[in-house]
Design a protein around this nucleic acid. Structure first.
Lengths: 234, 234
DNA sequence: TCAAAAGTGTTCAGCTTACACCCATGA
DNA sequence: TCATGGGTGTAAGCTGAACACTTTTGA
């Protein structure tokens, strides 16, 4: 969507009509948040927008997305997946732009602190359940990303990409409930399923809580993250 | 992917680095087929490629896909869904092209006959299980479309888009087996599920077969085509 | 009356759901 | 000993897989 890159003079030329935008999800204090940047020029001046930018002439689309991600979060390797390509004429009032969008998942503990705290006026993390005014069609893009995220965590272990290195089952359970916005998920059944999926291993310690301390777990590196789907229909 | 359009002189200018390619599926004589066009110039001269072309300056992406579809099949309204955007540098040896791909489903009875029969050297229908040599990265695109189609028919009634107006349960069952390439789907259970899904209504007649005649059905217009998904994980 | 294909019913194993219960800790 | 949250077991009901069975037609 051409959120202006502050370009050093040697920046290679980017493609004319193509841009990449990224919906970066993270989980902080029991809230699902996305990374947004504040626009400092027209159109949509002072509104918030997704991090994005042009694609360099010899740069694969995914690498462009990773470059943008690194600029906003300081992180290089993370979960990234193509989402959809938005290309309606008029979505950018200046000119025709085809925007290839991605969605990324990152644990908030991995985000470099200078990228996380809001002391910068121009980059911020916002709850998906209380979004500010958004530029272009970015509200639509985020809604679509949310739908995909919700589907994704139900047939794969993608939610682990949002968790810290070590976590309790309660925290994982909370994460699912926050993402799905469904607080009726049964605790006992959730734990049973996770145990049977055999994707966690106990970490060394315990987390202090109000009551009985909670066992810490980590994601097993050798686990099969994709759950093979059964047939729904017919 | 810039399969040359034979352009009338008044054709509007197309976007520089963007193209649209469409994987058009149909079902013919118990085979799943895709529409391909034979390239008549370099690169990949004489290989087969997906129907595709440039995007006009004021044309939405989906409308470009529909225009291409209409040119190859003579049909205007059909099932169309965005698939993926392929944009690696080098996928077209001539220049950088970002290809937004779509997949379409169409009943073979709706394809205008002059578009169906192979008397044209340049457009043809090919079994996905016996594809010819393909230009660019189109083999990869078709494989990906096939994966998506297989997923799709398992949680939605999309397979009906490939069926004729009226059909027997046996024909629908065969369609599923051909698409999934799995001939172990139990007949009794399949029928039971379809019945319970409540998406068919009986048509007037019967189809003559080798044995007992088979009831004809049609898709209920007011049916809920999407099956709400249950949770797999956790 | 037999072959071929349509169409149905029944059983069993496994999974989901709901919910009750026990355990460990600090105050 | 009580509140808080961690953690588990079990029974009821539903779903899916397997397979045997009946029905209707033409030859």
């Amino acid at each position: 969507m051409m959120n202006q890159q502050t370009s050093p003079p040697d920046t290679p030329i980017t493609l004319e009509n193509v841009s990449v935008d990224v919906v970066i999800f993270t989980l902080r204090s029991r809230d699902l948040q996305v990374c947004l940047v504040r626009r400092d020029c027209a159109p949509f001046k002072d509104d918030w927008a997704l991090p994005g930018g042009g694609v360099r002439v010899d740069e694969p689309l995914e690498r462009a997305a990773l470059r943008i991600l690194h600029a906003k979060t300081g992180v290089r390797d993370l979960y990234l997946q193509q989402l959809f390509t938005f290309g309606d004429p008029g979505r950018d009032p200046r000119r025709r732009v085809i925007s290839v969008t991605y969605f990324a998942l990152i644990s908030s503990e991995r985000i470099a602190t200078n990228h996380l705290d809001g002391d910068s006026e121009t980059v911020g993390w916002h709850s998906v359940y209380a979004l500010p005014r958004l530029a272009f069609d970015h509200a639509e893009i985020i809604q679509y990303a949310l739908v995909r995220l919700r589907n994704k965590i139900q047939y794969s272990a993608a939610a682990f990409e949002l968790m810290p290195e070590e976590f309790t089952l309660r925290e994982l359970h909370d994460a699912y409930m926050v993402i799905l916005n469904d607080y009726t998920l049964d605790k006992a059944n959730f734990r049973k399923k996770i145990r049977e999926a055999n994707i966690l291993e106990p970490a060394s310690g315990y987390r202090e809580t109000g009551g009985r301390p909670a066992r810490l777990y980590r994601f097993r590196r050798d686990a099969q993250p994709e759950i093979k789907a059964r047939r729904f229909f017919p």
